[in-house]
């Protein structure tokens, strides 16, 4: 008969209503600022730059190749190449970004920058406490605010970070056998880099 389903539905919601007062496990709400949900490894919010060691300027993995800047669909990355060079994660002499800004009010968390980076320098963060009081300056992250240590990367994405570290170690091993001629290697990479840019 018409109306039986209606009554069934009403009973169901009434059960929910009263049940939420008696059984705690029904309520899954977290009281946000006081309680926070644990970080989820498979989640992502916005990109950050990884550095090795303790000095974020020296350990910066990014070599300022600007691939991510070109690939970013909403064009929210802005990079300025440095005039000089410093050793990168593998030990080669490379450029580094003099300026590296990401406007996370524009970024759409697509992770394309991460996929295209050949140097494992940019990765996705999982932090979601991102509210800010100024919608322009506070959401335009500069190089310093983007830099997070490799330890932090291990903390938020343990499996991924481990495989990245293994790759980097292998690359370093390959680069290591010819420590005798670091100068020529640097010149060569500088030459190719110049031709590419």
């Amino acid at each position: 008969m018409l109306g039986v389903g209606v009554l069934k539905g009403l009973v169901e919601t009434a059960r929910n209503f009263f049940g939420s007062y008696v059984s705690e496990e029904r309520l899954t709400t977290l009281q946000y600022p006081e309680e926070t949900s644990p970080r989820i490894e498979a989640s992502r919010s916005f990109p950050f730059l990884v550095y090795d060691g303790s000095d974020w300027q020296q350990g910066m993995r990014c070599v300022s190749c600007q691939i991510c800047e070109k690939e970013c669909p909403p064009k929210c990355i802005f990079i300025e190449k440095s005039p000089d060079k410093k050793p990168d994660a593998v030990g080669k002499m490379q450029f580094y970004p003099a300026k590296f800004d990401i406007d996370i009010s524009v970024c759409m968390s697509c992770q394309i920058c991460v996929e295209v980076c050949p140097f494992d320098a940019i990765k996705m963060d999982v932090d979601y406490n991102l509210s800010a009081t100024n919608r322009f300056s506070d959401l335009l992250l500069d190089k310093e605010r983007l830099s997070k240590s490799n330890e932090y990367y291990h903390e938020i994405h343990p499996t991924e970070a481990a495989s990245v570290d293994a790759d980097l170690a292998a690359a370093r091993e390959k680069a290591a056998p010819k420590p005798a001629a670091p100068a020529t290697a640097a010149v060569q990479t500088a030459g190719t880099g110049g031709a590419a840019s």
């Binding site: 929910n16 209503f17 939420s20 029904r26 899954t28």
Partner: peptide, 10 residues
Amino acid sequence: KGLGRIQNRL
């Protein structure tokens, strides 16, 4: 509040 409780929210 009532709708919240019906959906098991606070």
